[in-house]
Design a protein around this nucleic acid. Structure first.
Length: 127
RNA sequence: UCAAUGUGUUCUGUCGCUUGAAGAUUUAAAUCUUUAAGAGGAAAGUCGGGGCAAUAAAGGGCGCCAUACUUCCUAACGGGAAGGUUCCGCAACCGGCGGAAACAGCAAGUGCCACAGAAAACAACCGCCUAAGUGAAGUUUACUUCACCGGUAAGGGUGAAAAUGUGGGGUAAGAGCCCACGGUAUGAGUUGGUAACAACUUGUGCGGGUAAACCUUAUGGAUUGAAAGACCAAAUAUACCUGAAGGUUUCUUGCAAAGGAAACAAAGAGUGCCCGCUCUUUUCAGGGGGGUAGGUCGUUUGAUUCCGGAGGUGACUCCGGAACUAGAUAAAUGACAGGAAUCAGGGAAACCUGAAACAGAACCCCGCUUACAGCAUUGAACGG
RNA sequence: GGCCCUGUAGUUCAAUGGAUAGAACGGAAGUUUCCUAAACUUUAAAUAUAGGUUCGAUUCCUAUCGGGGCUA
């Protein structure tokens, strides 16, 4: 069963700053992904930040809604990345750049496509 | 339609998140299994007030800020309840009802009042009056005219606002100068009321407005906010202490052994020299304080919620019983699928299609303000 | 989370409670020119919203809605 525990979230502010300053970007409307190969002590393959801009969505209800939908998409589809990574590790930041509130049904294919692109990029970088 | 009050849809399946409890695995932590719980009436705005914490404190004054009819409620408040007064409205008078009020003091001081207007505050520009006083002229010799000195707020196209209204007396002309009836401010007394205040009697007064202008009076307020604060504590550097290794030079106490102090950087000093020994520097090891990353507590048992009874016009209070009810921290409370109830449209019906607001806890309470679909209840001011 | 400041033409700024809210740049129209630029003339355009105090509010007060800053 796909799960999403606290250990898979990126909470350290130093790591987050490093990811946003050094990491590489791929994007497809309305989602942008920053990613960076990393090394960490734990046995976790992926560490993720999910972010929605306060500037675009002023009400907290809307932001929570989008973040929950994005988290659900990541939870159900992260096996695509995990197969490629095997024992290696990676930091991710999912950023929502759209202006309207999106459904689960519209977001899921976009995220699957982005993850497939990301696997190709990662293999190019690694090997 | 508007306003107020109440309510703020719900069930099942699969997968997932946070916290608590129990059990298992293993290495203390992590993982797995079972089970329980998991967003609002405003969680929002951050506008008042309080708890709590730190800092400063022996107390007081000035300053600054806030409040301002009365009594009460409350932990407290700029909140609330009941009442009073003034104003507005319900078509005028009376009563009644509905609504609003930053509702102490410009009769303490200072400032301001554009334009217009004689004048915007110690009112004399025009007008009215020459009775009294002085001078001149005329003649009827005690009068007239003129001038000076004056008197006067009754009238004057303005303005938001022009000096208490009407009538009479009075006067040279006038004037609360006097009188009557009013208006209004205030002092005293009586009655009613806890009080604000009301009614009546009586004295004194009446040169505008503005305090959401400075200000005066009275009352209250220390400052900063959980990112407060308390505790534990990697890595790195290290004050200090102990032990081991380990020099040189100088001074000093002492017969000597030995001890003390200072400097130097790779050794120095102590004996005439060497070995040895001692000290210092230095190096290593251990301890150790403060403290960063990080973590724990603060943190959810409280001015708590529900039920019943009693008191009070009411806000609210008291008594008894029962219950434990989110606790995240780059931030959980979700996703998908299928129903039920509500509303709208279509349809004879079965049913089909669509809609469902405002909005997301962050230390905790009490209020206020603002937003709000649908449903329910209540109200939306009259007689003589 | 907490604490502050601020809102005026399209933009940047003025205006002691007092006449029709002013200036610069920009916009529009015209003059000039063969055309453009420059220059000149004219013109449109604003007090965030809603109440209140006052004779009168951009200014004073209250609430709401925006914008910005500080605090780790």
């Amino acid at each position: 069963m796909p799960k999403f525990k606290k250990a898979e979230r990126l909470c350290n502010s130093i790591d987050i700053n490093h990811l946003f300053s050094v990491g590489q970007t791929i994007s497809q409307y309305p989602i942008k992904i920053k990613w960076l190969p990393a090394q960490c002590d734990n046995n976790v393959q992926l560490k993720v930040v999910i972010s929605v801009s306060k500037h675009r969505f002023k009400r907290a209800v809307d932001r929570n809604r989008i973040k929950r939908v994005m988290r659900e998409c990541f939870r159900l589809n992260k096996h695509i990345l995990q197969q490629v990574l095997e024992t290696r590790q990676c930091y991710l930041a999912l950023i929502y750049t759209g202006k309207e509130i999106a459904d689960f049904t519209t977001l899921e294919p976009i995220i699957i496509g982005l993850f497939h692109r990301l696997t190709k990029e990662y293999e190019k970088l690694a090997g």
